[in-house]
Design a protein around this nucleic acid. Structure first.
Lengths: 159, 159
DNA sequence: GCGGACTGGTTGACGTGTGAACCAGGCACG
DNA sequence: CGTGCCTGGTTCACACGTCAACCAGTCCGC
C-alpha cells in the first residue's frame, strides 16, 4: 500500500464539481417533485414504469430488476404506495408465491401530471443550459464510469 | 402551460447517463467506505472537515454551513457519531447556548485510514478513466448546473 | 433594564434505504 | 414420491434525511 496519489488541482475541481452537482441536483428534483406533485423520486420511478407497462401492471421482481432495487426496498415502498392508493397488490394467478402490482387511476393521474413538470425541471436545471458538446461528454462520461463500476463489482463477486 | 418538450435522443442519453452514474457511483463509494472503513459517507465528510480544523474541533453551526446540512440533520448525526465514540460534544465556553464538537483519537484514526482508500476508490471509479478534456467538461458542467440551481432557489425565495 | 426578535441546538414524527432473517411455493434430482 | 435447494416476497431492526416544534441564551431597540 504505497503512497496515496491525492487529486491534483484539475482532478479535484472536476470531482468536487460532480459531487456537489449530484447532491444539489437530487435535492432539487426531489423537492420539486414532492412539493408540486406529491410524489417522491422513488414513487415517480415506480409509477413511470408501471404506467408504460401493458395493462399497467407488473410482477414486483421484474420491476425490481428494472429499477435496480433490492427486493426488500421494493416491497416496503410498494406497501407505502398501496396505503396511499397509488398502486394495488394481488396474488399472481400463475405463480402462487408471487404478486402482481398494478397502477390505480389515481396513480395514473399523478404520474401523468408529474411527467411533463419533471421534464421541465430537468430542462430548467440541466439540459437546456448545456451545449451539445457537453451533453455528448456527459453521456460518454456516464457510460465510462458505469462500465468501470460494473467491472469493479464483477471482480468483487468472482474470486 | 403549452405542450411538454420531451427530451430528444441526445438529451435523453445524456440525462440517463448522468442519473444512472450518479446512483451507481454514490452506492459504490458508500458501500466501500462502510465495509472497508466502517464509516458512512456522512461520517466521512464530518470527520474530514473536523480533522483539518484547528484543534480538531468546531462549532456545529459552522460545520453545518460548510457541509450544507440542516441543523436538525447535523445534530442527529453528531449524536450517532458521539455514541460510536468518533466525536465528543461539549458546551461552548464563550456562548452558553452553543456547543463545540471535537474529533476523538479513534475518529482521527478512522479518517486517516479511510482518506487514502477513498481517494483510491474515486480514482478507480472515475478520475483515472477520464481524459483531461472530460475532467474539464465535468468541472464546467458542475459549475453551470449549480449556478442554475442557485438561481432557481433564489427566485423561489424572493417573490 | 427589559420585551421581543433572532440564533444555536435538540427532539419527535415520519418517509426512506440496507441487511438479514424468515416463510412460502416451485422445482429438480435421487 | 419425497427432500432439499432456489425464488419471490415480507418483515424486522437499524441508519439516515426532512420538517416542524420547541427551548434556551443572546442581542437589539426602546
Amino acid at each position: 500500500m504505497g503512497e496515496p496519489r491525492w487529486l491534483d488541482e484539475r482532478e479535484a475541481r472536476a470531482w468536487r464539481g460532480l459531487m456537489a452537482m449530484q447532491v444539489d441536483l437530487a435535492e432539487f428534483l426531489d423537492r420539486r417533485l414532492r412539493t408540486r406533485c406529491g410524489l417522491s423520486g422513488a414513487d415517480y420511478e415506480v409509477l413511470a414504469h408501471l404506467s408504460e407497462a401493458p395493462e399497467g401492471c407488473a410482477r414486483p421482481f421484474v420491476l425490481g430488476r428494472y429499477l435496480g432495487w433490492e427486493k426488500g426496498r421494493l416491497s416496503q415502498h410498494l406497501g407505502r404506495m398501496e396505503r396511499r392508493g397509488l398502486v394495488t397488490r394481488d396474488r399472481c394467478p400463475t405463480d402462487q408465491r408471487g404478486a402482481v402490482v398494478a397502477i390505480t387511476p389515481r396513480g395514473r393521474d399523478l404520474i401523468e401530471a408529474a411527467a411533463p413538470r419533471h421534464v421541465a425541471d430537468v430542462r430548467e436545471a440541466v439540459v437546456d443550459h448545456l451545449t451539445p458538446t457537453e451533453l455528448e461528454a456527459l453521456a460518454a462520461i456516464g457510460e465510462t464510469v458505469r462500465a468501470r463500476l460494473a467491472a469493479l463489482d464483477e471482480r468483487r463477486a468472482e474470486p
